[in-house]
Each structure stands twice: as structure tokens, then as C-alpha cells.
Design a protein around this nucleic acid. Sequence first.
RNA 1: GCGCCCGUAGCUCAGUUGGAUAGAGCAUCUGCCUUCUAAGCAGAGGGUCCUGCGUUCGAGUCGCAGCGGGCGUACCA
Length: 582
Amino acid sequence: MLRQQIEQRLQEAVLRRFPDADPASILVRPCPDERFGDYQTNALIGLAKQRRLNPRQLATEIAADLGLDDLTEPPEVAGPGFVNFRLRPQALVALLARAARGEHLFCQPDAPPRTVVIDFSSPNVAKPMHVGHIRSTILGDCLARILRHLGHRVITDNHLGDWGTQFGMLLVGWKTELDSDALARDAIAELERIYRVINARCSEDSPDHDPAVLERARAELVKLQQGDPENVAIWRRMIELSREQFDAIYRRLDVRFDHTLGESFYNDRLPGVVASLLEKGIIRESEGALVAFFDDVPALKAHPAIVRKRDGAFNYTTTDLATLEYRWETWRPDEIIYVTDGRQQLHFQQVFEIFRRWHPEVPTRLTHVWFGSILGENGQPLKTRSGQNVKLADLLDEAEERALRVVREKNPDLPAADQREIARVIGIGAVKYADLLPNRQSDYVFSWDKMLALNGNTAPYLLYAATRIRSIFRKLEEAGERFDPVAAADRATLTEPTELALARMLERFDFVVHAVAAEYRPNYLCNYLYELAGAFTAFYEACPVLRSEEPVRSSRLLLCHLVFKVLETGLGLLGIGIPERM
RNA sequence: GCGCCCGUAGCUCAGUUGGAUAGAGCAUCUGCCUUCUAAGCAGAGGGUCCUGCGUUCGAGUCGCAGCGGGCGUACCA
């Protein structure tokens, strides 16, 4: 927040000197080493080079013209022409006071607000949600929370896989294999089972292969596509049952969608999409299919995209194009974000390229936010011992169970219900944190031990710091005292190194949240919160709070109060809650 | 073949328009609980940032070439 003011004054000073300079390249960023200061700019070096000036001399002259006395110590020029800024304690105290009065929480919204559609999670009907869905769900939800926090209008849409050739087999299975008791017990497991049975009969290299079943599956699919009332009713029922199970998971994860418009929602639009693409000459017939070619795009030259298959059926490219057009017509978004696996990069390049040709008038930014795979300890994609996908519900159960074991060990005297609630919050938080902490583009190795470790950069560490703050205020309340942040702010004083370090950390929150939004990388926020929690525990060890004398005592309480709010807000942006105690 | 990603401490990984002496956790070692939660803190050791060449005042970061690994690549999504 103070960084922004420094940057603005720097840009103004540069423009006074060079009216034609580009302010977008005049940036102030955190110092890599706190010995140099809190913030620095290196933009003047490049600026001087362009204009054949001496960089150090230019830096010295600009630094003298900044008018930063209310915010920083006198700026220092260093090395080849860096300018280093050190925040004044009074400026930090004033910032904390404004936060105490509720004027901000160390983060300012983006202006102007934008409309952003986020497409994430997208599980398939009649299949259990498994680890393959976790990153999309958690990352997408986190980005939605971040962008909303920055003041944008966010529309989340769960593009369910509720249509496709698998329904031919599912319909045969429903009519010939269904065990209604099993369906009542665990609908998805039963749908999965009947699918497997029929799929085995349809596949030619299976010992159960039966050409008649394959034929029947095709016939049932055609009937569904033609609107046969019985098949449509069964199909709707399968969607309903699946959504109940998805919703149970989303409730546990505290994930919400504004819309759930599955693939089938776009069925009516598909023929029109293809007709329009043909009319505009964007696709043409090739080997019986209708295909878009990209001879003028080097990366896509060797990768044409099929928009209608030889047999006349549409595929996911067609559906995604219809979806894009619908979203544009309905919400006029400034941006549409797709959160999927990195393996779909080529697909989205093709879809975006086709859409640009199809609707060149649409200015919407199209973004594919992709992520790597979750691997087992053997370096291969994570599976159960029997080679199945790990079900998300099982994974969440185990996270909570493991957390419960630790809670019981650490807090044997708490009531069992409290232990379970604490374990639930920690377990779910640990899963989310472990997923958001790695750079999203890298594959990461899933490890229970690391995820629920009690130290290191983990959810329990952050939650522990937060509950220690809660504990301080609980003690205060038990003593019958009331804490008034505004009154504390009026006489706040920061002198101890760990106090000042904490205040500086709070000030940086704004920078980090904006960096997350700009690059779609929640791991920046994870690392920030870890540092904030670390700065708090260092302060906690060095500075008694309740036992100190006024006015130090209320200043430290104010720090605790604000650190808790930022931890709570930051963890909230990751979709993670804080237990009452640990 | 073409395209994308990765290669950083023994292990798992961060590393923000290119920025100063490359960071963290785990593991190893040394201290710290009669004081607000030790699920903690303070400290130590540990590096040819895959290799080479180039651009630059400055390269883990950018470009080119190579090596090693993962993934994608015409009718699944």
C-alpha cells in the first residue's frame, strides 16, 4: 500500500523529467535483501541507458525530487543505480491506525472492476470425483475468491461432463444391470459399476466382449439424442444423483458455483456453430470430418482441430466454442478463465484461435490457467494400490482422520466434538494448502506426511500461529477486558525489530494479492502467509503482549489484532478456515 | 517429426518488469519450556542453479544449440 504511493511519486518525478517516459515500466518492488531497505526501483538504470545518461547520477537527481519524507527515510542510491527506500516507523504506525479504523485491510481493490468468468472443477456425471479434479476445484475457487476480493464481478461456472457416448453404455447398464439397493447406498459407485460391466462387453479385447451389447449401446445413445422420453428421464436421474454427490464434496470444500451449465446445455447450439463456421470459411471438409486448419499459426500448423466428426457427431471443441459464444452473449465478460490440466493446452489454443477467427469483434481475454499432475511417491500419477483413481471423498476423509489423530495427541483433554471440528478444519485446510503451495505448473508429489506436518510451510503451521493470537484475545476476555483497536491505534508505538518487521509484512499484503491475480498463482499468497506467520511467531517469542506495560501493551495487541485479520483474510482467499484452538 | 513443461542443497520444492552475497522445509548438529499454546523459537553446516555459447552494466530468470525426464499431438474430454 505504501509501496504504491512510492511508486506513484516516482512515476510523477520521472514524468516531470521525461514527459515521454512510459510509467508502466517505472516500478517499485520489494528489496531482495532487507539490508538494502524495504523497497527499491531499478527502472532508472534502464531509463538512463536509453537516454545515454549516467545511471547513478540520474538516480541521485530523481531521488532528490521524490518528496517522500512522510513515507520513507531519505532514499539511497546504490550499485549501478538502484534507489532503495526504507519505510519510516511513523508511516507504518499511521497505516496500522487507518486499518484499525476500518479504512482498509492492507489491500486496495483494482480499478476499474472487470467481469470475469471462471470455468473450473467440471467433473463427469456417473463418475466419482477423484484427485484429478482437486487442483482445478481448489485453484479455480481460490482465483474466484481473489478476484472478488479485488472488487471484480466474478461468475463461476461448473461445466459438467453430462453428455457423450458413455451414456449409451450407461443406459444399457441401467436397464439391464442396475442394483437399486446399491444405487440407494452409493449412487456413483453403482453407476461406475454398471458402466464397467457394459464397457467390458463393448470392448473388443475383453473376454466378456459381446457385439450385441455394443450395438444396443449405440442404439440407446441414438434414442437419447433423439429425445426418447424414457432415456432422457434416466439420463436426468443420473445427473441428479451425480450432482448430489458433487455437492456433498463442494460443501465439504466450501466451494460454490454461480452456474452449473453442463455440456448438454449447449446441445441445441452445436449445429448452428458448425453452420456459422462453415459459412465464414473457418472449417472445411477433410477425410469426412469438418476441420479447422491453422497454416498461418506456427505452433498449430501441424495440429488441425476437428469440429464435427466423420459420423456427424460433435466433440468437445464444438461444445467449447458454443460455450464461449454463450458466455459472451450472456455476460459480456472482460475475461474468461479456464482452470484445467496442462495436457489440455493444445485444445484451448485451438479453441481460442478458432473463436478469434469466428468472432473477431469480441475483445474478451481468454486465459487457460493450467496446472501439473499430482504424483504418487513413486513419481507416477497418483493411484490407489489397486491402480484406481483416488476418490476425493476418501482423500478428504483420510486428511480429517489423520488430523484427528494429531489433535487427540496434542489436546487429549478437549471434548471429542471439539476435537473432530478442529480436525475437520485442519484436515481440509491442509489438503487445500498442499495443493495451492506448489507453483501450479509443476507436477507435485502427494505426501500425507508433508501435508499434515506440524512444522514447515504447511496449513497447520499457519493455523497454529492464528490460534495463538485467538488465545491471547481469549485470555483478555476472560480477564474481563475489552480491546478497542481504534483507541489502541491512537497511541500506538512500534520500536522492537520484530514489531516493525510484522508491520512491514502487513504492508506488503496488497502487493502479494495483486501478484496472485496478475499471474493466477496462489502460491505467492501461501508463501506470504507463511512469512507473516513466521514473523508473528518471532514477535510472539520476543515480545510479551499481555504481560507488557502500556502503551506497548495496546500497540502489541493492535499488531496481534491486525495480523489475525490478515491471516484470516489471506487464508480465506485460499478457501481455508481457522479453528478456535489447536 | 512438431509443440508444451521440467532439470536449483542429500530429499521435496520456492525464486515477482532480468537486479545486489540464490532461499525455505525436511533430514543432520547445537541451544531454549516455573513466563500469553514447544503443533514453537534461536543458531550451524550443506550449491559447477543440467551443459555450452550468446545478449546485457547485470542471467537461476531472456535467446540459440545440446543432454536427461514428463506430457500432448485427426474424430475421448
